[in-house]
Design a protein around this nucleic acid. Structure first.
Lengths: 206, 206
DNA sequence: CTGTGTGAAGGCTTTCACAGCC
DNA sequence: GGCTGTGAAAGCCTTCACACAG
């Protein structure tokens, strides 16, 4: 009922809160105030409280939030209760590094297969997952009903590859190529553009 | 005079426009309408025009924008006219991949040195830049007057390492560690959190 | 007295609508 | 006629102020 009314930015911050809660849990803290949690997440306390009200009331007045309970609620809202399979397309330098990046598995994502135009060149290194030739991508996506893809191919072919992925059934793309993908309305794209992040930083220290 | 009033989000989009213009230039297009450029950058035409008015008038009514001229103006505003030296701290999988990533140099950033707690383990591979032990970081930052750092150390030590960098004179950090860094007001941080981006995508395809 | 929940106010961005110029 | 430049309106998000609960 409430899902569609949660603002995009709030959803994003929920992940930050969740992260911070995991750290608190690891430190065996079991209650936290909005002030403390907000600081850990880099936001203002009122914003944290407002964000939480979008999907319920979880705190105890005068006390704060129960770490375990709030954590569970966030998992629920974010839909990260079950593992989500992901493919990686483009096993160059960046793609290979991401395959070895432990952060995805830690947050509940499993990279089940990787694809590259030149599958053989990468197979030799141990990437922990099989690298298939690009031609296989549609077949695998369809068969395993994969919905999410990490796209680390060169910008020149990114749109074309994205089109194929979408045709095969991919609904969400984490795009590292430095172009804006044109996609249908039902497909979500998040862009990670490292050069732009640097450029942006450099502006603010001029 | 105008720099401080340009909204943060506008600055970010200026980089997108710049990118799109480079592609147009490569294709020898020399005039572009706000509609076409906006599409390439993934925004609405009115937004593009509004963004540009923050620092001047560059178009010709009835015609559009001169690609080369607008491109030059953006370089000016973004302060990317001269090369900006950057250091990379933490040469693990992700850090090493970033060292080999051609996108930084292409956009005017030179990674001049890398640092790692275990400097020797990485030196063997050809990363195109020297990997120094972590203890050297303050010295290098001070001597070379480096202002920007890419932080790819584990989350557990990220805050501590960031403190050292800032003490040495770093003013901007591109942070890949999955924590929110607490920094003084004069320091800028941009966070890139790959797991959160994936989590965010997964929410929207539930 | 501490700390949450929330309507209302405020501020920031985006979008509209159209005047102005080529 | 086509397309930019821009004040005004709308929309969205954040912050405030304070009621309320433990």
């Amino acid at each position: 009922m409430s899902k569609l009314v949660i603002p995009r930015k709030t959803v994003y911050r929920l992940s930050l809160y969740y992260r911070a809660l995991q750290r608190l849990k690891a430190n065996e803290v079991d209650t936290v105030s909005s002030a403390a949690l907000a600081k850990a997440a880099g936001v203002k306390p009122t914003q944290l409280r407002k964000d939480l009200t979008y999907f319920g009331q979880f705190g105890t007045r005068g006390l704060g939030y129960n770490v375990a309970a709030l954590s569970a609620q966030l998992t629920e809202v974010l839909g990260t209760t079950h593992l989500q399979p992901v493919i990686l397309v483009g096993a160059g330098h960046l793609g290979s590094a991401l395959l070895r990046y432990p952060g995805f598995a830690k947050e509940g994502f499993e990279v089940v297969a990787a694809f590259d135009a030149d599958a053989t060149r990468k197979r030799s290194r141990d990437l922990g997952v099989r690298v298939y030739p690009m031609e296989k991508v549609e077949e695998v996506v369809r068969k395993k009903r994969i919905k999410m893809a990490i796209l680390t191919v060169p910008g020149t072919v990114a749109q074309e590859v994205a089109n194929n992925l979408i045709a095969a059934g991919i609904l969400a793309v984490l795009n590292f190529a430095p172009i804006i993908l044109q996609v249908p309305d039902n497909v979500v794209v998040n862009n990670v553009d490292l050069a732009i992040e640097l450029e942006n930083l450099s502006y603010f220290i001029q």
